[in-house]
């Protein structure tokens, strides 16, 4: 009975928390607004505060939700399909591979249209991910995979620094974005670029949910259930790479949301079943990134930190806890 209540109410609570979070994002900052004023500016195109609320704060808050949702779906797919509880686009080098490509495009002014950038980023994500997969060979040891992924990510970070250093506009904001991830100065065009891709990716994850869940029982059991094992694994990793690349092309390689959101959802729901975890994980991913963005804006106000610092500060201790809990006992 309790689990039934949980399954109905937790998504409701998450949606409510998301709404509060967006409202707070609209109100906080300079100038600080009352909720009523923020809502008035939202609904009235002639309102004097229309620009900060509608053009700056709203798209940024929504971008946080969408990007977080996409990252969460990517993390869930990778964790279940690779049977690795600490898998995620950031730990497989996928996010930072995407960031290298986009940083190169932006910093060197290559003039690639915004809508094409996610696909270019996907190429970077696939190359970095393929490097990791080649390097790990046949091992399935979660820690080993994460270690190789971290090495590839570090190499990509070095490339980002080099690229940003090469550029004429070599400023710290650009460096932050492609090294750590940031939602600063993102507007409607960015949201419009990433939203359809995230929607498609989350939809694909939903269609794949049962096959992915069967893969958690081992390849042979899944094959015995009629699941096309290799095709499912390739599809799920491809969808995860696309999601991570789409997000990274706009926000940079925001870390740990993909890792944490699925685990949080599993904890709250008390289940590991992919199909049950997916909806709440997606909502929590959006919530986590939106909260992290608020924190990064307000923590050292008026100085703004890149959101990637906030997610990393929360994510690293959580990763340590997780890897301790999932470590193979000696």
């Amino acid at each position: 009975m309790i689990t039934i209540i949980k399954r109905v109410e937790l998504p409701g609570l998450a949606v409510a928390a998301l709404a509060v979070c967006v409202l707070a994002a609209l109100c906080l900052g300079e100038p600080r607004l009352r909720p009523a004023t923020a809502l008035a500016a939202l609904t009235d195109p002639a309102h004097p505060l229309r620009v900060p609320v509608w053009e700056v704060r709203l798209p940024r808050a929504l971008l946080g939700l969408v990007a977080g949702a996409g990252l969460a779906a990517a993390g869930l797919l990778l964790q279940d399909v690779l049977r690795n509880p600490i898998a995620g686009p950031e730990l497989l080098g996928v996010s930072s591979g995407a960031a290298v490509v986009v940083a190169t495009i932006v910093v060197l002014g290559l003039g690639v249209p915004l809508v094409v950038q996610p696909w270019a980023a996907l190429a970077g994500a696939v190359v970095a991910g393929a490097l990791v997969l080649l390097a790990i060979g046949r091992t399935r040891d979660p820690a080993h995979v994460a270690l190789v992924g971290a090495a590839v990510s570090a190499a990509c970070g070095g490339l980002v620094v080099a690229v940003v250093g090469l550029g004429t506009q070599g400023n710290v904001v650009v460096l932050f974005r492609y090294l750590l991830g940031s939602l600063a100065a993102r507007g409607w065009p960015h949201l419009e670029t990433v939203t359809p891709l995230v929607a498609a990716g989350v939809g694909a994850a939903w269609l794949l949910r049962r096959r992915v869940e069967a893969l958690t029982l081992g390849d042979d059991v899944a094959a015995g259930l009629g699941v096309p094992v290799t095709r499912t694994r390739v599809a799920a990793v491809g969808v995860a790479a696309l999601l991570a690349a789409a997000v990274a092309s706009v926000c940079g390689p925001v870390a740990f949301v993909a890792l944490l959101a699925p685990h949080l959802a599993r904890r709250l729901l008390g289940t590991v079943s992919t199909r049950r975890v997916l909806p709440l994980a997606v909502l929590l991913g959006g919530l986590l990134l939106a909260l992290a963005d608020l924190a990064s804006r307000l923590l050292l106000y008026p100085v703004e930190l890149p959101v990637g610092i906030a997610t990393t500060l929360v994510g690293v201790p959580a990763l340590v806890l997780l890897s301790r809990r999932t470590a193979v006992p000696a």
Partner: peptide
Amino acid sequence: GVLPQTAVVPTGAT
């Protein structure tokens, strides 16, 4: 239906 020897117990599943 087949029950393989290599089944993996998913941690946490009921």
